[in-house]
Design a protein around this nucleic acid. Structure first.
Length: 568
DNA sequence: GCCGTTTTCGGCCCGACTGTTTTCAGTCG
């Protein structure tokens, strides 16, 4: 009987297959196909094993009949013969050589075949004994680089990526500061921050200027600069006092659109865009679009014109992940994405009634009203609100409502989904509440899917909080059967929240997209424990946009009386 | 190995950078 392999296992196998195939000198395009399939599997939230067994995996771009068969094989036998065979041919730690920066498959293969080196220890010896430089094309510098990397213990250092919630204000401040400079013409954030991705490696800014060196000068002398890592006439890298790396590129005005598009990415989006263009006789680069037949070059000052020239509607940066946006942009099928200004209420937040809450109910209400909201569901943690306290809180809510009307504070709770799937608040109390959020806060390793399903089935639960429980850079979320969860949520009319806390952003983008497609209404909530934290909504909205969600799919874009009707 | 608004065969993104070279291959993003 087949066991369904996890997506990460399938992707790992395909990646290893790519590595060893490449070292063995197989055609680059086959290797590329394995790598793309691996990436596609990682980005797919449905179970690739189930899809493959049903014969549907080849519907995914980049996966054909051959790779689908390999996935089925992995499920049925626990191994892929093609991988096992090649694994046996590539000895020892040769595959590990690829992890050394600057050392690719060609070089790894030559070090192995021509020097007989098969382990990292032997590689160190060979470099120290200056035997690596005996290979044509390699020299002293290569040996130096290898030894340096080995000394650093290039092991799997868990890459710490910055949080969008930290980077976004910084990149905005930089963009503002550059715009104020007299020589600046156009300035924009680029890269993953512009795409609203939840984490980033570095921050990118693109600009045009009448006097590029002067703008660079302004950039490297800003008050927040700790260190200037690189500096030229058109490009500079600084490190801020918080330790964030920021790249600025100053480009010719006539190329601003092309370069902004290029540096916004994602890489996969750009590759797909260029392949598509090529089939139509265009060659796209960061410097413009060349008509292959005539050699004529079109340059773009405005990114929108670039997309239009290639036959697409302009694609919002949040959608540029090579997950269907190009096709949609060609057929007029892009969604009208939700915006921050569409929100009219908050459906998950806390007050000082929770011990970790920092603001009173009234302060929270007034802060929400200042954002243009009309209601706020106060959902303090259930364990602070046993019966008498809950009644006391309701009295305070009534008093506040009298002072802030027509703004409305609603009675809510954030209850715990216990290890056995039950809710830690009595039904009689839940029934008195306007809005009930149920969240997993413990035992993340214990059948989370079943517990969430049980909570969804609870007739008095309106919404599931931070679905997987992930904390970025701290813990992976629970592995969930998202397909079953969204189906049940849609059937029961239970909302699945998108929690905007900077280190949560949970549901993640691909899950939220599936939820939206299944017809689940998604509240974008802040889980704010202070008035300031209501501002996290922009992070959640960025993620909602990455999930292709429209205003209609985001629950708290609706007035409370509508939410009330839609509530199960 | 994948894929198709010229193709079921014959293509497959593009340019910068590095180290080694004296014209380029490999690697990277």
């Amino acid at each position: 009987m087949a066991t369904i392999p996890r997506n990460s296992d399938v992707a790992d196998a395909l990646e290893e297959l790519a590595d060893v195939s490449e070292i063995l000198g197989e055609t680059g395009f086959r290797v590329l196909a394995y790598r793309r399939a691996a990436q596609r599997v990682r980005d797919t939230s449905a179970s690739i094993g189930e899809l493959a067994l049903a014969g549907n995996a080849k519907e995914l771009p980049g996966i054909g009949a051959t790779i689908e068969a390999k996935i089925v094989e992995l499920g049925e036998t626990g191994a892929m013969a093609a991988l096992e065979k090649r694994r046996a041919e590539v000895p020892g730690e040769v595959r590990q050589f690829l992890r050394l920066p600057g050392l690719g498959p060609k070089t790894a293969a030559r070090i192995w075949r021509e020097l007989g080196v098969t382990t990292l220890a032997e590689l160190r010896e060979a470099a120290e004994a200056q035997r690596v430089r005996t290979l044509q094309g390699l020299g002293a510098k290569s040996e130096e680089r290898i030894l340096e990397a080995l000394a650093k213990g290039f092991g799997p250092e868990p890459e710490r990526r910055g949080l969008l919630g930290v980077g976004l204000p910084v990149v905005r401040e930089v963009v503002e500061s550059l715009r104020e400079h007299p020589s600046a013409v156009d300035v924009s954030a680029a890269g993953s921050a512009r795409r609203g991705r939840e984490t980033f490696r570095d921050l990118d800014v693109i600009a045009t200027a009448t006097d590029p060196p002067a703008l660079i000068e302004h950039f490297v002398n800003a008050t927040w600069v700790l260190e200037v890592a690189a500096r030229g006439d058109t490009k500079a890298t600084i490190v801020t006092k918080q330790g964030l790396r920021i790249d600025l590129r100053v480009v010719p005005p006539e190329d601003f659109g092309s370069l902004l598009q290029h540096f916004t990415g994602s890489k996969h989006h750009n590759v797909a865009l260029r392949e598509d263009a090529q089939r139509r006789g265009f060659s796209v680069s960061e410097y413009g679009v060349t008509v292959v037949e005539t050699g004529e070059v079109h340059r773009f000052r405005d990114e929108r014109d670039l997309y239009r020239f290639l036959g697409y509607d302009w694609i919002p940066p949040e959608l540029r992940e090579s997950s269907g946006e190009l096709e949609a942009a060609r057929n007029g099928g892009l969604p009208q994405l939700v915006e921050v200004g569409d929100l009219v209420g908050e459906l998950h937040c806390h007050s000082s009634w929770s011990s970790d809450g920092k603001a009173s109910i009234e302060e929270m209400a007034r802060a929400a009203r200042a954002l243009g909201y009309r209601y706020l569901a106060l959902t303090d943690h259930s364990h602070y609100l046993r019966e008498e306290r809950l009644e006391a809180q309701w009295r305070e809510i009534d008093e506040v409502n009298a002072r802030v009307k027509p703004f409305r504070v609603l009675r809510g709770v954030e209850a715990n989904i216990k290890a056995n799937g039950t809710i830690d608040v009595d039904d009689s109390l839940l029934a008195e509440l306007d809005w009930v959020v149920a969240s997993v806060h413990s035992a993340f390793d214990r059948s989370v899917t079943e517990r969430v399903l049980a909570a969804i089935d609870h007739p008095l639960v309106h919404s599931i909080g931070h679905l997987t429980g992930r904390k970025l850079n701290r813990r992976e979320g629970a592995e969930l059967d998202i397909a079953r969860i969204v189906v049940r949520a849609a059937e029961t009319g239970t909302a699945l929240e998108l929690n905007s806390q900077p280190d949560r952003l949970d549901m993640r983008d691909v899950h939220a997209r599936i939820a939206g497609e299944a017809g689940v209404l998604v509240p974008v909530t802040t889980d704010a424990h202070s008035t300031k934290a209501l501002g996290y909504r922009e992070l959640g909205i960025a993620q909602a946009r990455r999930a292709w969600l429209t205003k209609a799919q985001v629950l708290n874009t609706r007035p409370w009386r509508e939410v009330q009707k839609l509530r199960r």
